[in-house]
Design a protein around this nucleic acid. Sequence first.
DNA 1: AATTAGATGTTCT
DNA 2: GAACATCTAATTA
Length: 198
Amino acid sequence: MKLPRTFYDRNDVAQIAREIVGKRLVSLLNEQEVAGIITEVEAYAGKNDKACHANNGKRTKRTEVMYGAPGHTYVYLCYGMHHMLNIVTNRTDRADAILIRSMKPTKGIDHILRRRNKEYLDPLLTCGPGKLGQAIGLDHRQHNGLDLCGDQLWIEEGDQFDKNDTIATIRVGIDYAEEDALKPWRFYLKDSTWISKK
DNA sequence: AATTAGATGTTCT
DNA sequence: GAACATCTAATTA
């Protein structure tokens, strides 16, 4: 069952991010079905988060979808080559988003191997936001603003696990964000090997 | 094992 | 020009 819009339409991004860990991401992009259990995410708290692209109410063509309705994708190109998957949360105009950083593949592994140019199933396939984007066939021009309540890309209930096994720590690659760089808004599954970094 | 260089588009100075 | 929510292959030690 796809998570309903009401799941995304709440005001505590960090809480939603924590809840997304362990759920299943399903992609039918490019007519190839790929799925995996989400193992690592980061929360970005809109206008009041110095690490967020929408910090201080910044609006550009790129960030515009973050100000839109919850339950849609925000896909942007990082370092000129990596397509990053984010989920817009909170009500329209708040610009909160959650970066999906890693997953454990469960379906369509042959498609992932082909897209990633690899031969074996191991964490190098999908542990890290750039790798994950490539694995699910993401493109920032085609898939920005996609509705997660539609039929191309969505999140559904995943495996059961102990909620105490979700670790909260500081986010990756945002040292420029001053005091917000210390916020414990990166969440990952303890003991999982499908994580970008310890 | 650790560090570096090179890939490259969007946004900001 | 420089920086950037990164990844890979090559180089150094």
